[in-house]
Design a protein around this nucleic acid. Sequence first.
DNA 1: CTATAACTTTTTATCGATATAAGTTGTTGT
DNA 2: ACAACAACTTATATCGATAAAAAGTTATAG
Lengths: 329, 329
Amino acid sequence: MSGLHTVAKLAGVSKSTVSRVINNEYGVKASTKEKVQKAIVECGYMANQVARDLKSQKTNLIGVIAPRISSNAVSLGLEGMADIFEQAGKHLLLANTLQNNEKEIEYIMRFNQRRVEGILLFATHLDTPLIEAINHSTVPIVLIGQDGSLFNIPSIIHDDIRVGFSAGMRLIEAGAKNIGFIGVHSQDAAVDGARYQGLVQALQHAKQVAPLFHSHGEFTIESGYQQTKKLLMEWPQLDALFCATDRIAIGAMRAITEINKVPGKDIKVLGVGNDELGQVCTPSLSTFNYAFTLSGKKSALMLLDLIENKNAEVSKLVLSFDAIERGSC
Amino acid sequence: MSGLHTVAKLAGVSKSTVSRVINNEYGVKASTKEKVQKAIVECGYMANQVARDLKSQKTNLIGVIAPRISSNAVSLGLEGMADIFEQAGKHLLLANTLQNNEKEIEYIMRFNQRRVEGILLFATHLDTPLIEAINHSTVPIVLIGQDGSLFNIPSIIHDDIRVGFSAGMRLIEAGAKNIGFIGVHSQDAAVDGARYQGLVQALQHAKQVAPLFHSHGEFTIESGYQQTKKLLMEWPQLDALFCATDRIAIGAMRAITEINKVPGKDIKVLGVGNDELGQVCTPSLSTFNYAFTLSGKKSALMLLDLIENKNAEVSKLVLSFDAIERGSC
DNA sequence: CTATAACTTTTTATCGATATAAGTTGTTGT
DNA sequence: ACAACAACTTATATCGATAAAAAGTTATAG
């Protein structure tokens, strides 16, 4: 717990010499080097990264802001970015906002004060205060999950419109006539907005103008269950459900089973995300694979590029998906 | 992006005065205060936390080392600790080791260099190099998931022996005669060692000395499936399986179903952890609920105590569990 | 109207490291 | 033997903030 100073005194040399030994620089006599190294061991010297960061004006710190660490998209994304940053020698500063919009903004500022080199933000919405906070940031910020390109914010998103379109086409091909959509908060332009929009486009393209039911809920199995129960009561002719996430879809299947209908037969069900839950439930859930680990890696790489290459252009990366056909459609 | 110095020049005062204004200290004339505040806004001053940390010898940083962020135990635990640390004004530095033992040790050192105030370590093993690294740490370290009390390391663990005992008793009560255990790496004293040990104790207590089969694998569904397939071939009379984790148990049920036996009827299955997967699979998985979010919170509180209270005594906290009876036993 | 208290502000030192400039040896060439 | 140069080492300034000491003002009392 002693600084350079202590080592220097102990070895009978100056701080500069000790520093040179530590950083393995040229121009140190073998005998002094040895003397210094002995002193370092003797007083248990450990470099102080805080001081180094201040002197070098470089922290090797990256901030990550997430709405809920334990969600599939975030925990897998985190793992992907951790991998890239580990290789790049960066450390991760993590904040869990629990979907508190003010905390999101607060952490952008706090991370700026800590002089992180960049920030990755898992976003579930994109309103004016947030956009302003992002614009005020001194360091680059990459958005994950929402499209910020309209506001010139670098973003990594999944192809949510096309996934909605694909889902719609698949349900129509399977003979669906009355399709319902169960989404999340209306603020969520990606998961709620875009996926629904794609579904609408599919129906238009197929010239099928059945009344579409758009229900809003949360990212949970329970919410999917409740929304579906309500929907089934109000709209008994329903024969297909596109759910914004797999968890919602699993809740939906539970509700369907409860009224003695068979998911995948009486009512087709599609989810999005390829959550492991969909593999083990009965019937297994047909869905679309979103490569969350990859999105984490890609966002990390994009951020690194923005950090290293000051005038890298702001870009948007749209990740594709794979259809996974299982029992529910 | 300018420092105190710039603000001071702009306002025509000294750095100290600016510092006093920023920290809202007494003894600044109202007129100067105003002048300084205007200057701060004008040049977009933002405090440099790195410099502050160096001067105050306090970082408000906590290091967290995990073997796999995306696992249930870790992501929920992370969420619990994030909650506590958020309230305590601490920031989280996160490392994902991917079960690489050297990385674990490397990060203990790197976090010490960064002058974190303490470290939380999700452990899957506890060998000599790791114990040494922990002992060399300048800052307190709390172990999560493994019992380090023998080596005087503060630990939060689940009652793994008793869970094994409970599982054994339950299987015996259900009429099981030939019980198999599917564990993980033999290095893992908690998940593999203790849970097995508890099972053995139950069998001894019930004076049932059937040959116990102890198989080693990984934390995955696939591994559970493979191990069970092998086990069923070698030991056809098997009528009960205690699995070290829920994922393993789900793989086991798949293997059982594949040979046209019915999990929960022909072969009883028990898991540990109460993973959501166990709720949706068929038959639903009987298991034991481990409060991972709570373990995260408790470990955070224990660490905070060790940080604030220099001579807080090293303690071990054993968290209990609840039995969850579902379809598989 | 000065002495002293009370208030405000500046100066200086410090946290721990490192880059640069300046200083001290020692060696070689002529 | 003395200049020129190489090889080491030390001294000083800096990163950006803050605490403590010193200095400068203003206000109040005697």
